[in-house]
Design a protein around this nucleic acid. Structure first.
Lengths: 343, 343
DNA sequence: ATCAGCACTCATCACACCTGAGTGCTAACA
DNA sequence: TGTTAGCACTCAGGTGTGATGAGTGCTGAT
């Protein structure tokens, strides 16, 4: 497809996209000819633009307006046209210092990170805390802390640890707890943690559990131990999106906010990004977020010391400053990984 | 002040407020005369309205429009005019069932509660999880769980418990931990938990700590144990606020969202509500939220089994359906208190 | 292949005008 | 004295008209 594009066409397309990103207004032929010091007249540019429109890279909102890039144009732009900016020294400094700032511990850093992303990009920053429910179960241990209080320690195959305090209705002896642990460690080898939970839930309704009081209660506790705590997700800079001229219209904004309110949707969207390495870019309908809202998403993975994987990124309008945001997301992901590996 | 108001004036004021709440449009004299089947002509109503305007209960956006209530009007309305609706059976059912739904444990219930509030009121639901930093410190204990892993158990004078897992850089023996505990229990009696933390921070910089390695590290750990975990706050239904016609204007919306983004502001606002019992109502500028945004807040406290206090409520436009929202907030607070005391 | 020129389109703006809801005031009435 | 009908006045908002200008597509010359 893009082989058909002559170098000149590509250059013009790039110019249009960048102009549009800068101004948010349809760009006309003369603007391209002028601002980009091409040795071409506006008429020639017009011809090229007509071609580009036919190929589906541009549309015009109406006859006598300039043209605006389509999703397809953005796609080819980020794939092959955009010249990525370097992350400036100042930005690097900010990323490193601000990420730590918001608080301590994992969630503190991540919160700070989402804020930093939002600040640097001027769009919405978003961070999904690593969850290790996809990891393979290795070992579980229950420790009796006191009356009706149990500490569950869950280890995944990657060495990730998860501690959880559980308060129970009845009291259990240390021996009971050891037996519970052995039972699970024996039965659940090789399953992912999500699967372990499913298995437990299944057994809870089984015949055996109906008769065996201890087993039944053990399952209940275990279930709490492996239950996925709602994926922590940090969104910062929601107000910033209102700065974008294309969202000054109330109806569209409403659409966006409603989409975000179901955080489940976001998580789902973002978990797709977890599998691949490096920066990933979703443009407009590729996000499969609200159909018409013209939103783009730039994400990257990060890794913790215990090898669990989280996701961070930036959400903004399709008309986003890709050239600067992409490197920022990339660099931030690296830095967060580094920061977390030090802990 | 409101003694000056004749019964008729009050009745008319009430009618205007309720009309305005229903329609969000300035209400004119004839509308009042007609819709409320008063045996009065519009001319008479006009006279009364002129009085009310002079007294500061009404303003007109411009000469030939109707009048809209001022904050002062809303104040007197909620204080003495409004006829509170009963919470319907259906709503009660919803409150009870939905609050439990979102998940388990405290934060699950609270999340569900904020969603329920939002759904029933059609405004924004908001819940602040109880924090016990204002409670008086009673007892702290450190338990060694394993290499470099400590469990801190903090008890407040009201009997509230807080467990926290702490990972340390160095390893500590059980004896070390007991000594640390004794030290704190001894020194910090009678202070609130917030004060305890301040005290610890102070001592960390003291001369003694500079020389005493163990003390210094003990303080560091203790500080983590009593550190206030960012008050959990659940906001649900942010998109709903866009339904309100008065916020269809983009600039105002932006203001609102920016205000909410600093959750600190919200927390501050809400912690004011913690002291008093029963439903509290803040109208417009009384919220000391963004000055011009015309926002009201209806809140009530709830109490957990361990006697810590949280806050829940509804945020909406000043032009809010007070008559139905107030009872809903009231009832929800009672129900949540009950729900939590069962745990 | 490039470009100057030209006719054409159409959103946007400014201006004027009209309409109607709502007001304040006054004078009459109970 | 309180209430009401009537009337002149105000002013936001809608509608219509014409001018403006940015931008286009096409054509014919270079």
């Amino acid at each position: 497809m893009d082989i058909e594009l002559s170098p000149r066409s590509r250059q013009i397309l790039e110019a249009i996209i960048e102009d549009y990103i800068a101004t948010a207004e349809p760009v006309g032929s003369s603007a391209v000819a002028r601002r980009h010091a091409l040795t071409l007249s506006s008429a020639t540019v017009r011809n090229v633009m007509a071609n580009l429109e036919e190929m589906g890279f541009l549309t015009s909102p109406h006859t006598s307006a300039g043209r605006i890039p389509t999703e397809k144009a953005y796609r080819i732009y980020v794939d092959s046209l955009v010249a990525l900016r370097q992350v400036s020294r100042d930005e690097k400094r900010q990323i490193i210092s601000h990420c730590r700032q918001a608080g301590i511990g994992l969630s503190g850093i991540l919160k700070g990170t989402s804020r930093t992303l939002s600040q640097l990009s001027n769009y919405m920053g978003i961070v999904v805390a690593p969850s290790f429910t996809a990891d393979v179960f290795r070992h579980i241990e229950f420790v009796r802390l006191g009356q009706r209080k149990i500490l569950a320690i869950l280890v995944s195959s990657k060495g990730a640890l998860q501690n959880r305090l559980i308060e129970t209705e009845d009291d259990y002896s240390s021996e009971d707890l050891v037996r519970m642990g052995n039972y699970l460690n024996d039965k659940m080898q090789g399953l992912t943690i999500t699967q372990v939970r499913e298995q437990i839930l299944k057994e809870m309704t089984s015949e055996k559990a109906q008769y065996d009081q201890l087993l039944s209660r053990a399952l209940k506790i275990s279930e709490q131990a492996v239950r996925a705590e709602g994926d922590e997700i940090f969104v910062e800079g929601q107000a910033r999106i209102l700065d974008q001229p294309e969202f000054s219209d109330a109806a569209r904004m409403k659409e966006i906010y409603q989409a975000f309110e179901q955080k489940g949707l976001l998580v789902q969207l973002l978990s797709r990004c977890m599998t691949a390495d490096g920066v990933q870019i979703y443009i407009g309908s590729e996000t499969s977020l609200s159909k018409s809202a013209g939103i783009s998403l730039i994400t990257s993975r990060f890794v913790t010391s215990s090898n669990t994987v989280g996701m961070l990124g930036v959400i903004g309008p399709t008309r986003m400053g890709y050239s600067s945001v992409i490197p920022i997301v990339d660099y931030t992901a690296r830095m967060v990984s580094k920061l977390l590996s030090e802990v």
